[in-house]
Design a protein around this nucleic acid. Structure first.
Lengths: 201, 201
DNA sequence: GTCTATAGAGAGATAGAC
DNA sequence: GTCTATCTCTCTATAGAC
């Protein structure tokens, strides 16, 4: 059974098509069954390529996950770039980041699952923790800036960052686990209004 | 090398000692190396028991994780019981729950890691998601009650629950990943003061 | 109940043809 | 670059003695 090639094509558009298809299949299987319960044979079968193809291009099983991880993180970074360019006020930036993540959760749950929910340290021990990743560091940076320039009440910057994004990330996790049944964008304004009330100077 | 038997003894006190030691060793290895990179032989060696002992008492490898999971969740439930009995105001209850989790994170990081951070669905597919678990449902229940009786501003109850616990859970994750270097209890009051500001009617 | 020895299967990785 | 066939090893689980 071949993976639907129309799925997250945006995320792999820089890669040769068969490698992109391979990563799509890996994303599907890794989020569905988990990294350790997915064999390289499974990925090959799902993608419709050979074992040899995979080992030639990705070196080993971890290489597939690594390529996938970097690819998706880079795209997330691009999305944050856009938010940063488009919005200057800290309130607007944080809101836009969360909105972007919420929309992504609805449209590409597998991407979000792999990025936010998977325990990378187990199968990518040498990669940086997802929280130390450029995208997440920059997200926290928006909050730090807000405290410096007085847009956010004076408080421990790290605490502020947790308040800003904690609720949203929690909602994403619960949505991916089907605990929340409402599409996240529908809850965005309520979430943000009440979150910001705690930060408004 | 035997695991330090003094570690999370509180959590296993109902079990015969060698089974408790086995679970301790499993907790150590599962959080350190991950479930899939830990073999049953590893657990046996770490605990100083035989393979046969483990298969006799836990049935299979998943059985170890399942016993561990249920054991720890039950204890967490007991802690929530205590909070519920001791505090009646919603504000106090939520604060106390978070404090309990923060203290637990510092004192028993492995317990917290296994409970909150591990992707159980991958190795315990039939168990309920951690978020659907009794303890977490009850935690959300405290918030729902607060909205009903007016202690929390009128808003979507789920959103309120995410705001209440989202920041705290996020901090726990980052603390376990060594992104946060400050002991969590030191940040508790700052976190709670600013979180509650968003919920206070 | 507890242990050791071992069976049996599956998966990661490679060799070598094309 | 791509594929198939296969090698090798590790790990789960069990059989059977004590």
């Amino acid at each position: 059974m071949m993976t639907d090639t129309s799925l997250p094509s945006f995320f792999f558009k820089d890669l040769p098509s068969r490698q992109a298809i391979t990563l799509k299949a890996a994303l599907f299987l890794f989020t569905e069954k988990g990294f350790f319960k997915t064999s390289v044979h499974d990925v090959a079968a799902e993608a419709g390529v050979s074992i040899g193809f995979i080992y030639h291009h990705f070196k080993d099983k971890e290489g597939i996950a690594r390529a996938l991880y970097n690819c998706l993180l880079e795209r997330i970074n691009t999305l944050i770039d856009e938010v940063e360019m488009k919005h200057k006020k800290v309130n607007d930036r944080c809101y836009a980041v969360i909105k972007t993540l919420f929309v992504l959760t609805e449209n590409e749950p597998q991407v979000m699952h792999f990025i936010i929910h998977a325990r990378h340290k187990e199968f990518l021990p040498e990669e940086k923790s997802i929280c130390s990743t450029s995208a997440f560091v920059r997200m926290r940076g928006f909050v730090f800036l807000g405290i410096e320039n007085g847009e956010i009440r004076d408080m421990d910057p790290l605490v502020a960052a947790m308040i800003v994004y904690g609720g949203a990330i929690r909602m994403i996790c619960l949505r991916l686990d089907d605990v929340i049944e409402t599409p996240l964008p529908d809850m965005l304004d309520s979430l943000w209004e009440n979150t910001w009330r705690g930060l408004d100077p």
